[in-house]
Write a protein that binds this DNA or RNA. Structure first.
Lengths: 110, 110
DNA sequence: CGTGTAAGGAATTCTGACACG
DNA sequence: CGTGTAAGGAATTCTGACACG
């Protein structure tokens, strides 16, 4: 419905609410922005506004940080993922490759 | 995907942002709550939180108010609509009736 | 590197109330 | 009835910085 997508990406949530939603401190959320892991928008008065997508991404970041992954590494991961989603042809190719791998593995094991 | 639905109904937007999104004043938004046209949640510290659904409803309310419809009437409208969406069988019946009406009207006019 | 905290200021939100109509 | 506004207080958000490690 296209409308649904816009809800997920619309930046309307303030940092305090994001903090509650993710369990991260306000300080952490601002720091991840400094490291370019997220890019909130600014409201007319300068307060940060986040989308549900941002919240999800922050939860991923939180998980990775708990595993000890540094923000620099996380940034690389994010860039890889974005590259993929911007190149559907390449994505399909990789998925096909995955299926082929699974296929041959099945034959070998069977 | 079920997830999408949750974005639309999750109450995370503060009143100032809702005001920007709808063009209504903060005073108006609070008043419509007093008249039971909307029911935001309260955050841990007592601030009102709205969902995208609430924002949409407020835009409808704004349109009706501009036409001069009083809040009491708007409340009735809302209750009617909610009744319908809670009774799918009745809803289908009404839609069928609508189709029948359109059919006969067509025959008469043609 | 990643995060806590105190600092000072600006803007938000809340409630109850008075005003106008 | 519907909405604006001033009032006083509490909580939020912002930035730049110092601290620890």
């Amino acid at each position: 419905m296209q409308e649904e997508r816009s809800y997920k990406d619309k930046k309307v949530i303030s940092i305090g609410t994001v903090s509650e939603l993710t369990g991260l401190s306000v300080r952490q959320i601002r720091y991840y922005e400094e490291r370019q892991l997220i890019s909130p928008e600014r409201s007319s008065k300068g307060t940060r506004k986040y989308s549900f997508s941002d919240v999800e991404r922050l939860m991923n970041i939180a998980d990775l940080r708990e595993e000890g992954v540094q923000t620099t590494e996380i940034l690389k991961d994010i860039r890889k993922k974005e590259e993929k989603s911007k190149n559907p042809a390449q994505l399909r190719k990789k998925m096909l490759q995955g299926q082929l791998n699974a296929h041959f593995q099945y034959k070998h094991n069977g």
